[in-house]
Amino acid sequence: MNDNILQISNPVLSIIGLSISYGEDKYAVNDVSADVKRNAITAIMGPSGCGKSTLLRAINRMHELYPNIHTKGEIKLNGDSIYDMSTTKLRRKIGMVFQRPNPFPTMSIYENVIAGYDLNGSKLKKSEKDEIVESSLTDVGLLDEVKDSLNKKGNFLSGGQQQRLCIARTLAFKPDVILMDEPTSALDPLSTAKIEDLLVELKAHYSIILVTHNMSQAARISDNAMFMYLGELVEYDKTKKMFTNPKDSRTEGYLTGKFG
C-alpha cells in the first residue's frame, strides 16, 4: 500500500487500479487507486494535461464518448460497480458540471432545471416538477434572482448565474456525487467566490469532486486533495496536510510553483 495515498473509511467512491488511454500506448490515467470521502470536497490538482479531466470523466463514464478509448480497472459507487448499471442510472447518481456553463439554449430556465427528467421521458406531475425546480434553484441561491423569469431563456443570465443554473440542473436528480471540471475557470472573481461558497454549503448533502488547476481554490474549499502528474496519482491527502507538508517532491514542486 502506497503511503502517499489517503485511506478513507466508508467511501462514496472507490477507484481501483484505473488506467485509461486514448488509443496510443501512452496512458492519460495510469493505475490510479483512491477512495473518495462522503460529504466532502475532494480536489484534483495537477498541471495541464496530467489526466484530471480524463479521470473525472471516467467516474460517470462520460469518457466513453471518445472513440478508441481503453479503460482498465474498476470504480465503485457505494460498493457497486459503475459498470453494472446503465449510464442513464449512473449519471443520475453522479452528476457533472463543466468548465463553461452549458445551459440548453433552446430551453427556459425552468425547463433547464427539470431537463434531466424531461429529456429522459420521466412523467412527473406539474406540482412535482415545480417542487424540484424550486428546491434546486433555492439550493444554488438562484431562486430570488430568477423567480420572475423562470419561463424565459437563460441567455440573459451572467456567466456565474448560468453556472449555478447548471449546478441546479444537476442537483435536480439529488445525486450522490457531483463531478466538477474547473467550474469557475471561465468566471470572474466575484462569481467564483459565490460558487465556492455554494460548494461548501452543498457538501452537507453531496460528495463533490472538484478538478481545479487553481491551487488557492483547492486550499480554500477542499477537504482532501489529489495531486496528479503525467497520469499518475502522486499524492492524496487531507488538503491542509498536503499544502503544509507534501510528502512527494513533485507535489512540493507543483505547490511551490516550480512547474504547472
Binding site: T88, K89, R100, P105, L119, T170
Partner: peptide, 18 residues
C-alpha cells in the same frame, strides 16, 4: 457547441434523445 451535447449526456440522456 459540443458542450450542449455533453450536458445532455451528463444527464444520462440516451444518444438518440440527445
Amino acid at each position: 457547441p459540443i458542450s450542449i451535447k455533453e450536458a445532455g449526456a451528463a444527464l444520462g440522456v440516451p444518444y438518440h434523445k440527445i
